[in-house]
Amino acid sequence: MSWKTAYRSFYYATAEEPDDIRLDPDTTALLVVDIQTTYLEDKETPEETERWRPFFDHMRGTVIPNNQRLIAECRERGVEVIFARIACQKNDGRDRSLSQKKPGFNYLLLPKDRPDGQIVPELAPQGDEIVVMKTTDSALTGTNLRLLLHNMGIKDVIVSGIFTDQCISSTVRSLADESYGVVVVDDCCAAATLELHKRELEIINMIYCHVVQLDEALGFFE
């Protein structure tokens, strides 16, 4: 199935197929969101680690290797590669947004210099590639990414990373509201479960972004 017909929600079930996508490397950025060491570590108990095992396996077997390829291809084409990661400036985390202070899965205390808060080594930024730190779900909210994209003349943003139903979705919606063309790479993203991942892609597809596969995305470059 082509990206033009996949992940159709109720709203777009009968919509016409979108036009072909053409990406100019000079005005396109790749934004890799929150693929940080902490999310690949074992959980507090063996039982909880096993509950997350499908996610860990999917990240190691598919998402990280696919992001390695996507990043390498973008670098080769001269596409701006940008990373976002969750990190707070204060050691006690009082600068975090409320969503990261609430108890539960979203509770995150990742001071900016902690090793487990860094981008996974396989995807480490190179040279002068930009890394924005955020205490919010959206990579645009609470960072200067909006200004950076504008200053560099970016018009289209390719988005990859985790979690599809949280920070990816929030970032995509923010980018769409700022009138960027947004492409989300399905097989370079993940949620905690495949069901959550697919459901969120269906929700955001066509209204906030176009959901595509890695090979399709690489074919969009002029």
Rank of each mutant, 00 (worst) to 15 (best):
F83Y: 01
S170N: 02
D156F: 06
S2K: 11
V131M: 03
D186S: 14
L123K: 11
K102H: 08
T171Y: 07
E222A: 07
K43Y: 03
I203K: 15
L110A: 05
Y39A: 06
I130W: 01
Y208R: 10
F56E: 00
G161Q: 02
E129L: 08
D19P: 07
K4Q: 15
L196Y: 06
S170M: 06
N151I: 02
K198Q: 14
S99W: 06
Q213N: 11
V32F: 01
E16I: 02
R8I: 08
P65A: 08
A6E: 13
N144K: 03
Q68Y: 01
E122Y: 00
V183W: 00
N66A: 12
S169Q: 12
D165R: 03
L148C: 05
I158N: 01
V79N: 09
V63F: 02
T37P: 00
L148N: 13
D34L: 04
E222Y: 08
E41V: 03
I168W: 04
I71Y: 00
I71P: 00
P125A: 09
G93V: 04
H150L: 07
I204A: 12
A15H: 14
V184N: 13
Q166W: 09
L196W: 03
A190N: 01
G78R: 09
N151P: 08
D156K: 14
K4H: 07
K134R: 11
S99L: 12
P46D: 00
R94A: 12
D186K: 10
D187T: 05
G78P: 11
T164N: 15
V132G: 12
E195S: 04
S9R: 06
A176R: 07
G78K: 13
L70Q: 06
G127L: 11
D128S: 14
T135N: 10
D186N: 15
M59Y: 00
G161I: 03
M152V: 08
R173M: 14
I158H: 02
W3Y: 07
E44R: 08
G181C: 10
I207E: 15
V211R: 05
H197C: 07
P121C: 11
K198G: 08
E222Q: 09
E129V: 08
P54W: 00
R60A: 01
A176W: 10
V183N: 03
A13Q: 12
F163W: 08
Y11S: 15
L175R: 09
S169T: 05
N106H: 12
Y107V: 03
A191T: 04
P46A: 03
A84W: 00
V182I: 10
P115H: 01
Y107A: 09
I86P: 00
M59S: 01
S174N: 08
R173A: 14
T5V: 14
E48G: 00
C188T: 05
D113W: 05
D137Q: 15
K101F: 06
G61N: 06
P18T: 02
V185C: 04
V120W: 02
M152T: 13
I158K: 02
F221D: 15
V79M: 05
F56Q: 02
L149I: 07
N205I: 04
R69C: 06
R69S: 11
L201C: 10
E222I: 09
A124S: 12
G161L: 04
G219S: 12
A124K: 14
R146Q: 13
E41C: 03
